[in-house]
Amino acid sequence: MATFIDGFLWYFALAVFVIGVSGNLVTIILASRKVDLSVPRDSAFSGALRTLFSRFLPDQHMLSRIGIQVVAGYMFHLGLFILLFFAAPHVAFLEENILGFGWTAAPHWLFIVASQFAFLGIIMLWLYRMTNSVSRLISKLDDHVATILTFLVMLSGCLALLESFETLRLLHRFLVELLLIYFPFSRLMHAFTFVPSRLFTGAWFGRRGVDS
């Protein structure tokens, strides 16, 4: 079991993830779209860049209407980002197994606080999805599976924090592998597609001289 999770399944999951994600991105980028023949009013390039970064900030009009989602959303995504890329065990894993180089990990307390924010965020977001009737109606099975799978990955990681039980480490890794396999076929792809999406929208607006 351990050799399967650490060996075959890991490489399989990684292959599915890399091929799936790059395949999706290539499809999106190469998709044919209508050529805009109008005279550009402004630079499409600067518009694309501006939008890519300006969309990281919350929209004022949305904030007042869906405050929980905005606040919990930021909590979840920022927390997840920190704990995913700056937790000491994650940095060590990436250095040893994938990248070959590492970076300074966050101190333990920051890792813990970040994961607490992420946990609170994901719980509230999923509950909002379930309690708000509109959110509930527009949610597909994919949304629930993605949320619960992400939550389980985080939870198993949290339970394995002592880093001393092989079974707990394997459970965490197994769930990560399931997530990696599921990733390219789900809305989790937004972790990558937000970039071309914003760039495209930004370029389109920029070309028309819309300051967005």
Partner: peptide, 8 residues
């Protein structure tokens, strides 16, 4: 460390 779990 702060919020650290104690080791063994």
């Amino acid at each position: 460390a702060a919020f650290s779990s104690r080791g063994k």
